[in-house]
Amino acid sequence: MAKPNKKGPTQTVEIFCAKCKAQLFKYRKGGKGSLVKCFKERIVDDYTQIPCQCPSCEQVFARDTLIRGAPAFKMIGGKVTMK
């Protein structure tokens, strides 16, 4: 399986907690689809103190996993929104 390229797309999206609207990440996302996973190497700014947990409401929004051999966060459906 091929790994995602390190540079990745140039378009960034901001990822927010769906419950309290706190900003979680600024992420270089490719494509137009929904947010299913976040590769750690593509995260530009990380606003969380504890990985996969919202800093304000402490809700768990993702799981730490390996996808295609690269470390990533697998998003839990309905827990995050993006702009």
Score class of each variant (00 low, 15 high):
residue 1 M to V: 10
residue 6 K to V: 10
residue 9 P to A: 15
residue 9 P to S: 15
residue 10 T to Q: 15
residue 10 T to H: 05
residue 11 Q to D: 15
residue 11 Q to E: 15
residue 14 E to H: 02
residue 14 E to A: 00
residue 16 F to C: 02
residue 16 F to D: 03
residue 17 C to T: 05
residue 19 K to V: 10
residue 19 K to L: 08
residue 19 K to H: 12
residue 20 C to Q: 11
residue 20 C to G: 12
residue 24 L to P: 01
residue 25 F to K: 05
residue 26 K to P: 02
residue 26 K to M: 08
residue 26 K to Q: 09
residue 29 K to G: 06
residue 30 G to C: 10
residue 30 G to S: 14
residue 31 G to H: 08
residue 33 G to H: 11
residue 34 S to T: 11
residue 35 L to M: 03
residue 38 C to Y: 03
residue 39 F to E: 06
residue 40 K to V: 01
residue 40 K to W: 03
residue 40 K to S: 03
residue 43 I to E: 08
residue 44 V to L: 14
residue 49 Q to Y: 06
residue 53 Q to K: 13
residue 54 C to Y: 01
residue 54 C to V: 05
residue 56 S to I: 10
residue 59 Q to N: 14
residue 60 V to G: 05
residue 61 F to T: 02
residue 61 F to Y: 11
residue 61 F to E: 02
residue 65 T to E: 15
residue 66 L to P: 04
residue 66 L to M: 14
residue 67 I to C: 10
residue 67 I to V: 12
residue 67 I to H: 12
residue 68 R to P: 01
residue 68 R to Q: 15
residue 69 G to L: 09
residue 70 A to C: 13
residue 73 F to G: 00
residue 76 I to N: 03
residue 76 I to T: 02
residue 76 I to L: 04
residue 76 I to S: 04
residue 81 T to G: 01
residue 81 T to H: 02
residue 83 K to V: 03
